[in-house]
Design a protein around this nucleic acid. Sequence first.
RNA 1: GAGGCAUUAGCUCAGUUGGUUAGAGCGUCGGAUUGUGGUUCCGAAGGUCGUGGGUUCGACCCCCAUAUGCCUCCCCA
Length: 462
Amino acid sequence: MSKPSIPQGTRDFAPAVVRRRQYILDTLRSIFEQYSFQPLETPAMENLTTLTGKYGEEGDRLIFKILNNGLHEKKGADRDKLVADWDKMLEKPFTSPNVTERALRYDLTIPFARFVVMNQNDLAFPFRRYQMQPVWRADRPQKGRYREFWQCDADVVGSTSLINEAELLCIYRSAFHRLGLPQIEIKINSRKLLAGIAELCGTPELMMDITIALDKLDKIGWDGVVKELQQRGISDEGISQIQKVISVTGDNEAKLSALEIIMAPSQSGLQGIEELRKTLAYHAELQDTAWNSALTVDISLARGLNYYTGVIVEVVCKAVKMGSIGGGGRYDDLTGLFGLKGLSGVGVSFGIDRIYDVIEELGLFPENLSVGSSVMIVNFGGANEEYALHVLKQLRDAGVTAEIYPDAAKFDKQMKYANKRGISYVILPGDEEREKNMLSLKNFTTGEQQMITLQEVIENVK
RNA sequence: GAGGCAUUAGCUCAGUUGGUUAGAGCGUCGGAUUGUGGUUCCGAAGGUCGUGGGUUCGACCCCCAUAUGCCUCCCCA
């Protein structure tokens, strides 16, 4: 017999862990609701064609595909096609509906876009939805990287107003404030600004190459970025333009003003700057002064998902060594991919597994999450058991979280169980208590014990 | 998809230049203690040394493959 195990990159969540995860989820849910977003859930699996081509080449590779059922039943021509496609798959990256036509959800944004297109006649636009569900990626697991993890997304589709961007920034800041996370930095940039940079370089078609290289600035430094830019075919002239752009310093407005001068030749670049400026202005109106996270214009922020077209954001917690814990941006034509043109959307995503890891590493989970105030009734068997069951029902009717030890096991064993469970109170309904119609209530924290009535027990325990 | 490190009891880890019977702490179970846990004392159980091959008279140790975890690249939440 082999030891049981779970698939690579997946985890079981023990009760205490689930409670902490729920604490994060509940916090986010209440903020989403406060900002008037509506809940949505979509299937764990999508048609493979819905997902492929939406996340870039790397993304396609990381989609978890589901093998079709009944492959062995294929007969005749169908079988020949299947065998041919199978051989093809063994030779190169290739998928065929003969082999796989479904896949696990890779993110929540594309399924959302798919939902919007399918339900466009019933939805009131602008449509604001939040969604908290697991997603799957066939990535190589490492710190903060799992093959099954949860995303919590809020998106607004059907409005191009930058008020939406500003509100989503507020959701981020409010959430990280409520969760008590220190040293949060929300980086903000615009794809239009990045397109402008590519224009300045005289190579607008290399925008993706430029942004991917720029995105590594933090990690490999300017010299590393130069090397990467050269490899990607950017001219020395272009590189010096890029250097001018990223040398811009100061607060957000100072950066934007300086960029405005550099970007003068690029209409797209200027538009990006204007959008950032407007977003920040709206945000300033809506923000709460208690929020202490930083909101920083960062020209080097790129974001890999290739459907973003406008403002993009990414969240990092500088207190720990961890990848981004959230990201998002505007996508002008996501629903166009499914046949609904002219519907712009913008959204943000929280990576709750990473947020969990950050909170855990910093020891910032509230103490009382797993220590529910609960009551256990000791089982003395016989007539006492009957009495105990009666008491149990009364407690539950009164709204008390309570359980009875189901077996009339040795007293010692029952007490040890209560201790290990972290039970707050133990009730002892024995012969004496039953005859007097009283109960002995033991406070398991202080060790104190008293014989009182059921009514008094309820008052004590609540 | 590429590279590096790791894997020994339920958990955390020792161990041997390849040599008979692989250890500790914690935990578990039993007893002291069949109405008083968390403290104490006594005792016990628990391992094909991740898996599969190979080298060797002999492998937990060396070699190869593979799985899982961690880390780097890539990419991302």
